[in-house]
Amino acid sequence: MSKKNKIFIPCEEANHVCDKNQYKEASLLEMIKLNIHLIYCRVCRKYTANNTKLTKALKKSEVKHLDTSAKNNMKKDFDKALKELNN
């Protein structure tokens, strides 16, 4: 962080903190700054509300995916079968 520690942050940074917070990775200081920003910035308030909604929806849906290594393994096997078929 090269910037000085300001209490008032621009919208860009506020959005960034908000995104981080969706994954519980924002620090306490960042959260305080975000909340101060939200007091006077309507646009960011809306963004934050939407963002939280999105996180809740994703959690509620319990969408589950394959992890990358499993997918890669699957790809390997599949490619092998594909080659055999073509030969």
């Binding site: 589950k64 394959l66 699957m74 078929l85």
Partner: peptide, 25 residues
């Protein structure tokens, strides 16, 4: 995602998806 909501076992679901792709092939 479709499988896991019906089989509820990660490994089994993975196998089933794999089988599906191969069968499709």
């Amino acid at each position: 995602n479709y499988t896991i909501s019906r089989v509820s076992d990660r490994e089994k679901a993975q196998d089933l998806v794999q089988d599906t792709f191969l069968a499709g092939l």
